[in-house]
C-alpha cells in the first residue's frame, strides 16, 4: 500500500488550478506553499498498479510543470 510524497511545481501563476486538480484525484493530499508555485503532495494508493495509474494522471495535468519524488513508503496490507 504505497504512500509517496512529492513536490509538485505548477506552471507560473497556476498553483490554485493545480491544487484543485490534484485534490479532485482523491488519492492525493496537498499542502500549497504560501509564497511559491510549489505544492507538497502525498499520494496514498492500495497497490503499485494504482500508484502507477495515479502518477500518470498527475503527470498529465496541464498546470503541472514538474513532479519530483521526495519519499516513498510501503505499508503492509492488513
Amino acid at each position: 500500500m504505497p504512500i509517496k510524497s512529492y513536490l509538485a511545481l505548477s506552471i507560473s501563476g497556476r498553483k490554485e488550478e493545480l491544487m484543485t486538480a490534484l485534490r479532485n484525484l482523491h488519492q492525493c493530499e496537498v499542502v500549497p506553499a504560501k509564497n511559491q508555485d510549489v505544492l507538497a503532495l502525498v499520494t496514498d494508493t492500495p497497490n503499485e498498479k494504482e500508484d502507477d495509474i495515479l502518477k500518470e494522471k498527475i503527470e498529465a495535468l496541464d498546470s503541472l510543470k514538474l513532479l519530483s519524488l521526495v519519499s516513498g513508503f510501503d505499508t503492509p496490507h492488513n
Partner: peptide, 11 residues
C-alpha cells in the same frame, strides 16, 4: 502517521 511523515518530508 506515515502520511504525515511523508508530507513533512516533502515540505
Amino acid at each position: 502517521f506515515i502520511k504525515k511523515m511523508a508530507m513533512m518530508s516533502a515540505m
